[in-house]
């Protein structure tokens, strides 16, 4: 118990004193996951919109595929990407393995189906009159899409926050295609895994606190956003 208390104190000390190694890991995590979510959101929302309003064969099958991808374990995505990016793999020449770019790509693969599925649910629940109103008032197709997305913006923001929470807390992809290289690809989750395996709990606990605070902030913001969504409808 005493050891636990001491380790927690040490963890808090690392956080409060702005330990450069710890905060560089935190910054790297945010940098990678923010890039992934920013790159994923526009195409995912377009796909979700097309699935709701499109009129092409196989929509149900595509939707079922996206829903199935929600439950794919991160290590499987990591393994798939590893095989693709390894020297002998089809994209080996790009030399992306064990890089932040590989981590971003992996997180995009993880996040895309989440945003499509949640975006689909949100856009599908949108009032049909929004689209018809935009069309009848002369909006071009791209402005019609923007209008619909804007009208359900709180629901979409909740989807994006959920996706961000998922990718920043994943470990399988980052470990497999990032390689956990200090100062380059070591992020919060891979650092926790490493420090724990070494028996160095202080940094792991400090990083765990960062993740917990992030989870709390995201959940609070999500609740606020969902309240806004209910008010706007």
């Amino acid at each position: 118990m005493e050891g636990m208390l001491f380790t927690t104190q040490k963890a808090l000390h690392l956080l409060v004193t702005g330990d450069p190694e710890l905060w560089s890991i935190v910054m790297l995590s945010f940098s990678v996951s923010l890039k992934a979510i920013i790159l994923t959101t526009p195409p995912a929302m377009l796909v979700a919109y097309s699935l709701v309003n499109g009129n092409f064969p196989g929509i149900r099958i595509i939707l079922a595929v996206f829903n199935s991808l929600l439950s794919v374990p991160t290590v499987v995505i990591g393994l798939f990407l590893y095989v693709m990016l390894t020297r002998q793999g089809p994209f080996g020449d790009l030399r992306l393995l064990f890089s932040q770019t590989a981590m971003v790509i992996g997180q995009i693969l993880l996040c895309f189906p989440i945003l499509v599925a949640l975006g689909y649910a949100t856009i599908n629940a949108a009032d049909r009159r929004v689209r018809e109103t935009a069309i009848t008032l002369g909006a071009p197709w791209w402005f019609t899409i923007l209008t619909v997305l804007y009208e359900v913006r709180f629901g979409l923001l909740a989807a994006v926050l959920t996706g961000f929470g998922r990718i920043i807390s994943e470990v399988g992809i980052s470990m497999m295609v990032g390689g956990n290289i200090l100062g380059y690809t070591r992020n919060i989750t891979t650092a926790i895994a490493l420090e724990t395996s070494k028996g160095e709990f202080a940094q792991g606990i400090a990083l765990g606190i960062v993740l917990l605070v992030l989870a709390f902030v995201l959940t609070t913001f999500l609740t606020y956003v969902q309240g806004k969504q209910e008010m706007s409808t």
Partner: peptide, 23 residues
């Protein structure tokens, strides 16, 4: 075409009235 219950977009009356003029 106007719906039975018209859908007014988020924003002010002014922004709703000006919506179609943007195009």
């Amino acid at each position: 075409y106007l719906h039975q219950q018209p859908y007014l977009l988020s924003g002010t009356v002014e922004s709703n009235v000006s919506y179609g003029l943007r195009f």
